[in-house]
Computed example of a mutant assay.
Amino acid sequence: MIQVKLTKEKNKTTITARGHAQYSVKGSDIVCASFSTLLTHTVNNCTDVAVKDERGLFTAKFEDVNSIGNQTMLKAFENTVNQLAEQYGKYITVEEVSL
């Protein structure tokens, strides 16, 4: 299962993710592919992002949440990852935290 945590603070948003969907065999797992594409697209199209990938835990810290572009991308990520969780809840979960 993919476990996603979206932590929103006043001036920073952090996305953490770990795990594998295991929806299907390697190479044809549509849940894993969808999430990976969504996360990569979000990170690659935002500014001031610090990324760390260690031992299966991926962390992306978005420092410029006041940027209109970043706000748009992060809202799109949030909406889409929640849709994935609604449709494939057995394979991906989302936790949202506001500090």
Score class of each variant (00 low, 15 high):
84 L>P: 04
37 T>K: 04
2 I>V: 12
64 D>T: 04
33 A>E: 00
40 T>G: 08
70 N>V: 04
65 V>S: 08
49 V>S: 01
4 V>G: 01
93 T>R: 09
5 K>H: 05
97 V>W: 01
83 Q>D: 13
88 Y>V: 06
32 C>D: 00
73 M>Y: 06
50 A>G: 04
14 T>M: 12
3 Q>I: 11
19 G>K: 09
6 L>P: 00
97 V>D: 02
13 T>W: 07
38 L>S: 05
15 I>T: 04
73 M>T: 11
32 C>A: 08
37 T>H: 06
6 L>V: 14
57 L>P: 00
80 T>F: 09
14 T>G: 02
67 S>Y: 02
28 S>F: 08
74 L>M: 13
12 K>C: 09
29 D>R: 12
58 F>G: 04
93 T>G: 10
89 G>C: 10
87 Q>A: 11
47 T>R: 11
3 Q>N: 12
53 D>C: 04
12 K>Q: 12
64 D>H: 09
96 E>I: 15
92 I>G: 01
24 S>K: 13
64 D>R: 06
41 H>D: 08
91 Y>D: 04
74 L>P: 06
11 N>F: 04
7 T>I: 13
51 V>A: 07
65 V>W: 05
20 H>P: 04
13 T>Y: 03
85 A>T: 10
16 T>Q: 11
51 V>L: 14
42 T>R: 06
5 K>D: 05
71 Q>I: 07
55 R>H: 10
49 V>A: 04
97 V>P: 01
2 I>Q: 05
49 V>W: 05
51 V>H: 05
11 N>Y: 11
42 T>D: 03
28 S>K: 15
82 N>D: 11
19 G>E: 07
56 G>L: 06
62 F>N: 05
44 N>W: 03
37 T>N: 08
64 D>V: 03
17 A>C: 08
28 S>H: 12
92 I>N: 00
60 A>T: 06
96 E>G: 03
88 Y>Q: 06
62 F>Y: 11
49 V>M: 03
92 I>D: 01
3 Q>K: 15
81 V>E: 10
11 N>S: 12
73 M>R: 15
45 N>T: 08
43 V>Q: 05
28 S>C: 04
18 R>P: 00
41 H>S: 12
10 K>R: 12
48 D>V: 01
17 A>Q: 09
37 T>E: 01
72 T>Q: 13
57 L>Y: 05
96 E>P: 00
71 Q>Y: 03
45 N>F: 05
